[in-house]
């Protein structure tokens, strides 16, 4: 009787155990992605709380969130959403709040967060700017961070004056990229800060030992002088057009009407002309000292491609 009862028990428990195990095995799955609606920032602990809980271990806590930031960047790489690198911003912001001297985070995240949606339409640029500005505040002597911030300000936010100032400082820092002074003087001239642009270019010209680089800065000094003249002519054309409702036919017309005191002379030996777009130019060079417009270049390239495609049989 007792043996039968025992047998019955095992007959019941064994199938239940087996069914349970099989069900668990069948239903087992890797961790599910948390459901996401419209973009929401990751829920991160408050900085104050982390500072208390991680007392004495701030580097370790910062590293933990840095690893999370890298994972967020990795996830972003597999996505096509406009918000794909926003998680990286929130993690990086927390990491740099915990450890403001974590230099790598500013460089990596500041460059990764801006997202190109195609046709040079960029998003998340303000977040990248915030991080780079924090980086420059903590590393004022770092020329690379200033260069990245200047690029962000100039290209994404069209704040060329602020960008020029960062480049001007970057150009004077040690171990600076050799192209920084060249870009800095260009932006300073564009923002009509001719004295600062000339001071920078002349100082690099006078201290440069490489004859090729010296020649580049020598030319830049002349280009700045020319840009000063061209901007003066631009202002005169704008004033003329506003008053007359048309573009001037020649430079002499502007001199006659008092918009220019005398005929402008190109310090580089070229002839100054009025372009069809109402901007002045010179025969000494078709390029002006202004920020490189990548968006315009992109669309021009696209247009050229389309034209080529139409011409080809």
């Amino acid at each position: 009787m007792l043996q039968r009862s025992k047998a019955m028990k095992s007959l019941i428990t064994l199938p239940i155990l087996l069914t349970g195990l099989v069900t668990v095995a069948v239903l087992a799955e890797p961790p599910r992605e948390p459901p996401r609606g419209p973009y929401q920032a990751p829920l991160l602990p408050r900085l104050e709380m982390l500072k208390v809980v991680g007392a004495g271990q701030r580097s370790l806590v910062a590293d933990y969130y840095w690893l999370q930031a890298i994972q967020a960047a990795g996830r972003g790489g597999h996505s096509l959403e406009a918000t794909r690198y926003l998680d990286l911003f929130y993690y990086s912001d927390l990491v740099t709040d915990l450890d403001p001297k974590f230099h790598k985070v500013y460089l990596y995240s500041g460059n990764t967060i801006p997202t190109n949606l195609g046709r040079e339409t960029w998003v998340n640029t303000a977040e990248a700017r915030k991080l780079l500005e924090k980086g420059v505040k903590n590393f004022p002597e770092d020329s690379t961070l200033r260069l990245y911030l200047a690029y962000n300000l100039s290209y994404f936010h069209q704040e060329h004056a602020a960008a020029a100032e960062h480049l001007r400082i970057a150009a004077t820092l040690p171990n600076v990229n050799k192209f920084v002074p060249e870009i800095a003087s260009r932006l300073l001239a564009f923002n009509r800060r001719f004295d600062a642009a000339l001071a920078l270019a002349e100082s690099f010209r006078d201290n440069e030992t490489d004859p090729e680089m010296r020649q580049i800065f020598e030319e830049r000094v002349l280009e700045i002088h020319r840009e000063k003249v061209l901007l003066q002519v631009d202002d005169a054309i704008a004033a003329f057009q506003k008053r007359e409702g048309r573009l001037p036919s020649a430079l002499s017309e502007m001199v006659d009407k008092g918009d220019l005191p005398r005929l402008p002379v190109d310090p580089m030996g070229g002839v100054i002309i009025i372009g069809p777009d109402g901007k002045s130019g010179s025969t000494s060079s078709t390029l002006r000292l202004e920020p490189i417009d990548h968006k315009k270049n992109y669309f021009e390239k696209e247009r050229q491609k389309q034209q080529d495609a139409q011409v080809a049989p």
Partner: peptide, 24 residues
């Protein structure tokens, strides 16, 4: 794990984890 997760900050993370865990 860190060799797989970290990007270019491996030295730092290795030091932090080693000494941090030791201290905790």
């Amino acid at each position: 794990l860190l060799t797989n997760l970290s990007v270019s900050t491996f030295d730092r993370v290795l030091t932090d984890v080693g000494i941090g865990v030791m201290s905790i």
